[in-house]
């Protein structure tokens, strides 16, 4: 998939990150890990949902922040796509809960999306198409997760909770989406079978043939279409399964550390899966100036990547401070131990 000179883009955005955190060192202590896991992953703590939070509540809070940031009438929203790999129901949409909670009209379409960690960016693409075709006025694209890692599994060190919501439209843009391009193959690097509580993964196989191959292919593909290179962007955001991969893939593509620094939030909140790339983009929008450009590439296991080229407009300065920033959420942190974490995540079967 490819698209350029779209004339559509981001009207508003909002994020939500739960207040509880567990330190990666605490998880390592429980499993008797002698290696410095936090350092080797470049992830030091991760966000944990409260006992009464799930993907739907996170999606609603993020959507409310997006609506209030631009003071939008939710009845203008014609489509809600919620991407997650931890929807509360196997059958019954998360998006309907969001639509009702934010006060949408009932004249809108809803579907949930799942594509491991990139379902949120896929949701943005779906909204771009509907807005550009004139079928809807505004589209709401959400990426949110309360991701699961089996006790003691490598994923447990990073699997976190959080989400971001983007309102896509054609007027009053805070950022224009200049182009998008996707690269997709059938690569079983990470999966969760129906009815299973925790995902499985292909170990080292998740790196080169999965993350790096897809992210670089999508990123290069979009830059080629637009005739641009890394030096044409002020910022870059890559999917952040840990703190190492996005740094490495940025270097591989020729982006500098300073370009990815504002959006690299995984060391402090962990991998929020469908929220990961979108929270990284939000953290970048939180500080980008009018006229600056952002290059974004997500990754979802299974596997695929969606790349976006984004240019920030003058309007960003008008609305940026009307909703909490990513840093605002990161600043509110209440630390819990593994026992409390296990209770919050339902790892204790009663």
């Amino acid at each position: 998939m490819r698209g350029d000179h779209l004339g559509v883009g981001i009207v508003s955005y909002g994020v939500y990150i739960p207040r509880y955190r567990i330190k990666v060192d605490e998880i390592a202590r429980v499993w008797g890990e002698v290696e410095d896991v936090a350092r080797s992953l470049n992830v030091y703590e991760k966000a944990v949902p409260d006992l009464d939070e799930d993907t739907a509540t996170i999606a609603v809070e993020a959507a409310r922040n997006a609506i209030s940031r631009a003071d939008l009438d939710p009845r203008r929203i014609g489509a809600i796509y919620t991407g997650s790999e931890s929807h509360p129901y196997a059958v019954k949409p998360t998006g309907t809960i969001v639509g009702e909670a934010i006060g949408c009209s009932h004249s809108h379409t809803v579907a949930d999306m799942e594509f491991a960690c990139k379902a949120g960016t896929a949701a943005i693409q779906a909204c771009l198409g509907l807005v550009r075709s004139g079928m809807i006025d505004l589209g709401l694209a959400i990426g949110a997760d309360v991701s699961q890692g089996a006790p003691g599994d490598a994923l447990e060190y990073t699997a976190a909770a959080g989400g971001a919501a983007y309102v896509v439209g054609s007027k009053d843009l805070i950022a224009e989406i200049e182009g998008t391009y996707s690269f997709t193959t059938d690569t079983p690097d990470f999966w969760r079978r129906e009815g299973m509580p925790y995902p499985e993964h292909g170990g080292r196989f998740t790196g080169e043939p999965a993350y790096f191959k897809h992210v670089t292919s999508a990123a290069k593909g979009l830059m080629e279409i637009l005739g641009r290179g890394p030096e044409d962007y002020d910022y870059a955001v890559f999917h952040q399964p840990n703190g190492k991969f996005p740094v490495r893939v940025a270097a591989k593509l020729g982006f500098k550390k300073e370009q990815i620094a504002p959006g690299l939030v995984v060391p402090l909140i962990g991998n929020t899966y469908s929220g990961s790339t979108l929270i990284g983009l939000a953290a970048t929008l939180d500080q980008a100036k009018p006229g600056e450009s952002i290059f974004v590439t997500s990754f979802g296991s299974g596997a695929g990547s969606d790349a976006f080229s984004i240019r920030v407009t003058e309007r960003i300065d008008d609305i940026r401070d009307r909703a909490p920033s990513v840093r605002d959420y990161i600043a509110i942190a209440e630390y819990i131990d593994y026992a409390r974490y296990a209770k919050h995540k339902g790892k204790l079967r009663l």
Partner: peptide
């Protein structure tokens, strides 16, 4: 916005 209750493992979730 929070979960208010669940009808057991199989039932509806109230928000």
């Amino acid at each position: 916005f929070r979960i208010l209750g669940k009808e057991g493992e199989r039932g509806i979730i109230y928000y």
